[in-house]
Design a binder for these strands. Sequence first.
DNA 1: GCCAACGTTGGC
DNA 2: GCCAACGTTGGC
Length: 171
Amino acid sequence: MKNNNACDEGTERHYWLMKSEPGCFSLDDLKARPGGTEHWDGVRNYQARNLLRDEIAVGDGVLFYHSNIPEPAIVGLARVVRGGYPDDTALDPGAEHFDPRASAGNPIWYMVDVAYVAHFATPLTRALLSRHPLLAGMEVLRRGSRLSVQPVTAAQWRIVLELGGCAEVSW
DNA sequence: GCCAACGTTGGC
DNA sequence: GCCAACGTTGGC
């Protein structure tokens, strides 16, 4: 976990990285959804839940990361179009991420909605990202980093968009 | 497939 | 409250 320094304390974060296994849900899948929009549901980790519930807001930027493949990479961009609200897949006994402890009055788990923005011209692999001195500290590159929703600094965001050929995308 | 890193569970 | 056992994530 990263600790805030004095400059970050109390300031809003606007940029995030979200992981997905492309065999489960890829950036192409997001693009193909009606309106390019989908719920980011199924997160069952309290640290990520807190971000979804309390921090992630409409208009925030999302780096879309493909994990658990031969060459994991940031493949493109999405935008948050709805802030945190209860993840009702936790209430569905038939759902993969059903949680018997959750109820309508105590949803426990939260999700946001994200909308497709763009694919990068080429996927930004871990090797490529690590080569950039200002990206070497990214949470996703840290060994053992498992958080599926991570904060990204404004500086990191800007550099990643440049590397991805999306510097002109305004936020 | 291996295994390190991490979160969660549960005995005590 | 400690901590060992266990399950999962995810890079390699």
